[in-house]
Design a binder for these strands. Structure first.
Lengths: 169, 169
DNA sequence: CCAGATATGTGCGCTACGCACATATTTCTG
DNA sequence: CAGAAATATGTGCGTAGCGCACATATCTGG
């Protein structure tokens, strides 16, 4: 059946995310979108509450409370934004350290599944996944959403297309 | 960088699970492990509360409450088990229908990401993922956990080291 | 200069889950 | 074969994470 591949990818994705989420919970002591929020804020482009909300796919109030948790955990600070309405989210030193741990934990979780493959197989798989992602029809915000856990220290050449509405940002 | 592949697989897995979970929530109106529970119970080997708990990776009480929700939604029935202590979980007709919808939604979600690939690329990817899964060092319960969302109507040849109908108590 | 858009914060409730405890049934001893 | 331990389920209570509706502050365009 042609759907066999869909089922296999579904199973693999579940296994991958189980491991990533377990590691993330151990590192930051929180679940849900909180780990992703820490990573996204760490990208450092003067993240606002509202932008974060759209990237994480949460409601507005859910995002405010999520940031409340990060602030009470001393991982994030709310600073004044350019616009008097906006809040600029910044990582504290502790937050930046936690973020690095989080990224390392994620890479390690995925690597532990991948290291049964030979270097040639890994290269082949990387090429296929890169193509798969590159051909997706993703909006600017979709791209941030998919990449909300991505390790910017490792992913120097993101395959996702940046041109859906033809103009970025 | 050697970790590029891990990051790519992590990003893809996140995208896949986002779509699967969104569809599952639309179908059953519940999140968390509830959709997986419906699928697992539907495998139909006289599932018990305790076995379900181990497959889903939840606490005991969490599982009891999860089953409570499924029962109150008229998707699952609690029947007497062989052992006087056990409860045998069975899908109602409504539950079986919801389960089929759920599986179809999952396959459709993954397929929508995959159909940018040519048949040859899909076949190549399937072979690699199958190998990746086949070489994992998984316990009996790990396999059920990884396969807790799997479509048994589609996955006739599970690559994980044990057939899924098998029960080792 | 004021109506609408934008951005954030709050009151309130709900879902999903865990811990500790209680209860019922088997199984395993001595 | 009686009692202890193991197994399986259910309950009281609390918490984390999130959404809806509403309130407030700031910016923008006619």
């Amino acid at each position: 059946m042609e759907n066999g591949i869909a089922n296999l990818l579904g199973a693999l994705s579940l296994a991958v995310m189980d491991r990533i989420e377990q590691g993330a919970r151990e590192v930051v002591g929180r679940g849900g979108e909180t780990p992703a929020a820490l990573i996204v804020i760490g990208y450092g482009q003067g993240m606002t509450n509202d932008k974060l909300r759209r990237i994480l796919g949460l409601s507005h109030s859910g995002t405010v409370r999520l940031v409340d948790r990060l602030v009470s955990d001393r991982l994030v600070e709310r600073r004044a934004g350019k616009d008097g309405r906006e809040v600029a989210l910044h990582l504290t030193a502790t937050g930046a350290a936690a973020r690095n741990e989080l990224l390392a934990s994620r890479i390690s979780a995925v690597t532990s599944l991948l290291d049964v493959m030979s270097p040639a197989e890994r290269k082949q798989l990387a090429t296929l996944i890169r193509e798969l992602l590159a051909r997706q029809d993703t909006s600017e915000m979709d791209r941030f959403t998919i990449c909300r856990m991505c390790d910017d220290r490792v992913c120097t050449n993101c395959p996702l297309p940046t041109n859906k509405g033809q103009h970025a940002r």
